[in-house]
């Protein structure tokens, strides 16, 4: 079941990349020969990766989670833009106002996928970069402008923005 889902996903990616459609006179033609290598490659990838497909992919087939994912995408884009102006300001300022350090934060997320998603979000948000993640939810985050050195304060600044959204998406 999950192998079939992964196969279809890979084939869809192939179709989007190769785009075997040709429009002539208002009719759309499908160049079937261009799908053959895609089918072969997708089958090979599924065969090689069949033991490392994550279990929890079925949680995605759920409109509530997809709604929260759309909300998350909006919040994420906002923080990415904010992060860029923040870092750009620190780079071009002559005095370079940085106070870097590695702080420890705690998350209440339980699944590996959720912690990975949070780490990715932290890496693209203002001034933070995950250096190390523990299985139990402890994250060590490099912060370009440390505002709080204790665990609770840093968690409030770094983790709270995304944790509630990711919890609704992944858990």
């Amino acid at each position: 079941m999950k192998q079939a889902a992964m196969f279809l996903l890979l084939l869809l990616l192939w179709v989007v990349l190769v785009w075997p459609f040709a429009v002539t006179g208002g009719r759309v033609h499908l160049a079937a020969m261009e799908l053959v290598p895609g089918v072969i490659v997708a089958l090979l990838v599924v065969l090689i990766m069949r033991h490392s497909i994550p279990e929890g992919f079925k949680v995605w087939i759920n409109p509530v989670r997809l709604f929260w994912f759309v909300v998350y995408a909006g919040v994420f884009v906002f923080y990415v833009i904010k992060a860029n102006f923040d870092v750009a300001y620190r780079i071009i300022h002559p005095a370079m106002p940085i106070h870097p350090g590695i702080v420890k934060v705690k998350t209440t997320l339980k699944t590996r996928a959720g912690i990975a998603m949070l780490s990715n979000a932290i890496a693209l948000t203002p001034g933070t970069l995950t250096v190390h993640a523990e299985e139990n939810g402890d994250l060590y985050v490099h912060w370009i402008n440390v505002k709080a050195t204790d665990v609770d304060g840093a968690t409030g600044y770094i983790v709270r923005r995304f944790e509630w959204l990711i919890k609704r998406i992944m858990e």
Partner: peptide, 12 residues
């Protein structure tokens, strides 16, 4: 670590 921050965010 600071360099990685700059390269990751701005280049992305």
């Amino acid at each position: 670590y600071n360099r990685l921050q700059a390269s990751t965010k701005c280049v992305t």
